[in-house]
Amino acid sequence: MSQQPCILVVDDEEIIREFVAEVLEEYDIAHAEDGQDAIDKIPDVNPDLIITDIKMPVKGGEEVIRFAKKYNSSIPIIVITGYTSLDIANECVRLGAIGFLSKPFTIVQLRDEVRKCLEG
């Protein structure tokens, strides 16, 4: 049995983390409660994909992206945010995110975005 890709879900909203985990049940899911937690876990988890919120306490999504890209520049990153501002999306793309999901998103959007990112 081939090993499932590992996805690190970073969000300070527990319900979002749980929902993403349940929708992506075919993947190996790791959770991080905020940016700092994600930065701490990335070296251990070595995720194939990171799904991260932008605005979080302590450290935000931008710092997670920066750290992840420094750690492994090939890790695809999907940004999910409650903000609808294009500026934020642009900033994330500039930092290296390749997917963007605006809350609330559908399960189809989530699955498609994850699939696209994992398939490269």
């Binding site: 909203e13 319900i15 979002i16 929902f19 609330p104």
Partner: peptide, 24 residues
């Protein structure tokens, strides 16, 4: 408003996601 929208979008994300997922 930006903060409020964000505050609303978080639970809405859960609501939309869970309802779709459960229905599916």
């Amino acid at each position: 408003s930006a903060g409020v929208a964000h505050e609303l979008n978080n639970p809405l994300g859960g609501i939309l996601g869970y309802s779709q997922y459960t229905l599916e």
